[in-house]
Design a protein around this nucleic acid. Structure first.
Lengths: 192, 192
DNA sequence: TGCGCGTGAGACAAAGATGTCTCAAATGGC
DNA sequence: GCCATTTGAGACATCTTTGTCTCACGCGCA
């Protein structure tokens, strides 16, 4: 009601709401449902109409994050060309979802008690497979495990999103910064 | 009472409690005071006797984290030798505080409204200065800003702590993994 | 033995968050 | 102009967490 035509028929773009929620929760993980709603520009009642509760909201965010990551991986064509180029494409494609990822990565309590969402393991596997491919082709060093490189990718993407939010790094540079750091660190070097 | 002599005179090692609290809060950021107390092996009442409230506990954790980081930096002698070697020493020294750092980094809501604790900026400055020194000496590439490398260091240390907690990387390897990835990515390379 | 100290357990009210409900308002289609 | 739909606002009970308090217990010490 602050920025809109007041009334009603404003179908509440579900994706838009989820994105706002992710941004708010990234900024403050303990945000109230009311804070999340306000950040998305709607009332707590309406937010609650679209997501049964906080748990449902978080799970929807998780689903969205997984979808976006899978889409990014598909678009990046991880199996084509050099592993290095594929990794660069992946980082580029995954950048729009960085904020969402930054939140989900820190939300490790999701996996408490509940079975770790199989969607995440599938993502992990695909990324790890990419790093392994690079290791087998001789592009990447083998003394940094694929599992660690996968974790590092998540961590750097999250750090990047956070750095941009805080204005420490320009948004247009962050994709390059992540790719250069990760690829530079993973690449096998000729010179000692 | 589960592992102790029941009774009383168990002076409650403040540092020990803070460490348990950090571990618990890293695992689940929304842990209750009761959960934190149980994880530390004491009752909620006693926890509350030593830390006036949740805020006080978090602030104490922050203080401890800053202290440990400063101590690590002092021990690492950031100004001596090559920037690369200094960075390697820093990562080694900072490793024991990784879990604590992993929590504090995600606790960005600390800086909401309140003035960002000046201790953190001092730490940031010291690390950034190290990276700048490496850039000026020609060891590190200049197209990755010192600010980004600083953020990346925090992110990788956090990811490392998380990976170890989850059993994805062996604790004994994590220091090497972080150092190699970060230094490899930051280093200026001769071969293109 | 008796005292002091620090703790655990539990009760308690206060504060905050959550989930549910009702009602008024406003828009688009009829 | 009227109706269906969807929203915002607010009331409400409930639940959780928090902070405070009291009391009993156990240990060290005189």
């Amino acid at each position: 009601m602050s920025q809109m035509a007041y009334g009603c028929l404003m179908p509440v773009d579900r994706d838009q709401v989820l994105r706002s929620a992710a941004a708010q929760l990234t900024r403050k993980g303990s945000s109230t449902m009311d804070e999340v709603a306000r950040a998305a520009g709607l009332s707590r009642a309406t937010l609650h109409r679209h997501f049964a509760g906080r748990d449902a909201l978080i799970r929807a965010l998780e689903e969205l994050g997984i979808q976006e990551c899978e889409a990014a991986m598909d678009a990046a064509r991880l199996d084509e060309g050099s592993a290095q180029a594929a990794l660069r494409r992946l980082i580029k494609e995954i950048e729009p979802a960085a904020g969402l990822l930054a939140f989900l990565v820190t939300e490790n309590q999701l996996f408490e008690g509940d079975a770790q969402h199989e969607g995440w393991s599938r993502l992990d596997d695909r990324i790890a497979a990419l790093f392994r491919r690079g290791q087998q082709s001789g592009e990447f060093r083998i003394d940094l495990s694929a599992a660690w490189l996968t974790e590092a990718l998540y961590g750097l993407v999250g750090s990047g999103a956070w750095a941009v939010l805080d204005g420490r790094v320009a948004a247009k540079d962050i994709s390059y910064m992540i790719a250069e750091l990760l690829i530079g660190g993973a690449r096998r070097r000729v010179e000692s």
